[in-house]
Amino acid sequence: MIEKRAAQRHRVFKGGTITFENGGIACIVRNVSEGGAAIDLDAPVTLPQSFTLAIARDNLVRNCRPVWRSDRRVGLAFVQ
């Protein structure tokens, strides 16, 4: 299989929080790279076009947008 990602993703299993205008949702971060991440949600949720992902353990806060979805897993792109 040919790798098409611009940056290598690293597998992780860390608690995170996505926050947006009307609230926040806990998530599990499954992998992360310089350009994005994949998260798992407890239930299928409609997400806004942009939000913030925070991983307190790593002191990481990034603005994101969803780029793909598969059931409860969501692929995120970090935005400036």
Rank of each mutant, 00 (worst) to 15 (best):
F13Q: 08
N63L: 14
I28H: 05
R73E: 14
Q8L: 11
T46K: 03
A43T: 11
A38N: 11
C27P: 00
G75L: 02
D40S: 10
R11L: 14
I39M: 05
F20W: 09
D71S: 05
S50A: 06
N31Q: 07
G16T: 01
C27G: 02
Q8H: 11
C64Y: 01
V12G: 08
I18R: 00
I18H: 00
F78K: 06
I55D: 03
D58S: 11
F78Q: 06
C27M: 04
T17E: 11
A26N: 10
T52I: 14
E34P: 07
R30S: 02
A26S: 11
G15P: 10
I25G: 01
A56Q: 05
A38T: 14
Q80E: 15
V67R: 12
L76T: 09
R72C: 12
V67F: 08
P44R: 02
D71E: 10
N31L: 06
G36N: 07
N63H: 14
S50I: 01
T52V: 13
V79T: 15
N22H: 13
I2K: 15
R69G: 04
A43C: 04
H10W: 10
G16I: 00
R5W: 01
R72K: 15
G36I: 06
D58R: 10
E3S: 09
V45I: 12
D40Q: 11
A54Q: 08
A26D: 10
V32R: 04
R11K: 13
S70Q: 15
R57Y: 10
G36Q: 07
D42Q: 14
P66L: 06
G36R: 04
E21I: 12
T17N: 09
P48W: 02
E21D: 14
D58I: 05
G16F: 01
